[in-house]
């Protein structure tokens, strides 16, 4: 009898990994992410081939100290591209259609700075 019980115990031990494997738990859960409808795609605008003779707009959203950085950029542009003009703009992050249309008319290319 004792031997029989020992044999059964060994059998259970041998089967245990299989039993544990069979006990793997699977949870099927729902994805919490909202679908993002893809917005219309716009490629970057064609670049100017060179800056010489061009007008460069510099748009800054006006946060403190940024002007010092843009002064440095403007100075380098003037030094290295003497025939290039710069026009400085300042306004809110979202410049709006009216301002954007105005800038498009006045310059050939734009540096847009957020600073944050």
């Amino acid at each position: 009898m004792k031997r029989l019980l020992q044999g059964m115990a060994v059998g259970v031990l041998l089967l245990l990994p299989g039993l544990l494997q069979a006990a793997e738990v699977a949870l099927e859960v729902l994805n919490p992410r909202g679908e993002i409808p893809p917005p219309p795609f716009h490629a970057p605008s064609e670049r100017v081939s060179a800056l010489d003779g061009k007008t460069v707009g510099i748009y800054w959203i006006g946060k403190a100290g940024g002007d010092n950085f843009w002064d440095g950029v403007e100075q380098l542009l003037n030094e290295r591209y003497p025939n290039t003009k710069t026009v400085r703009y300042q306004g809110p992050f979202d410049l709006g259609d009216e301002r954007a249309t105005q800038i498009v008319k006045e310059v050939d290319t734009v540096l847009y700075g957020v600073g944050d």
Binding site: E46, R47, V56, G65, G72, T109
Partner: peptide, 21 residues
């Protein structure tokens, strides 16, 4: 103090303004 920071990114800026898309 800001001028050297501007200078450090100047070449990258020129490339991104002028290299074809």
């Amino acid at each position: 103090r800001a001028a050297p920071v501007a200078a450090a990114y100047f070449d990258e800026m020129i490339a991104k303004l002028t290299q074809p898309v």
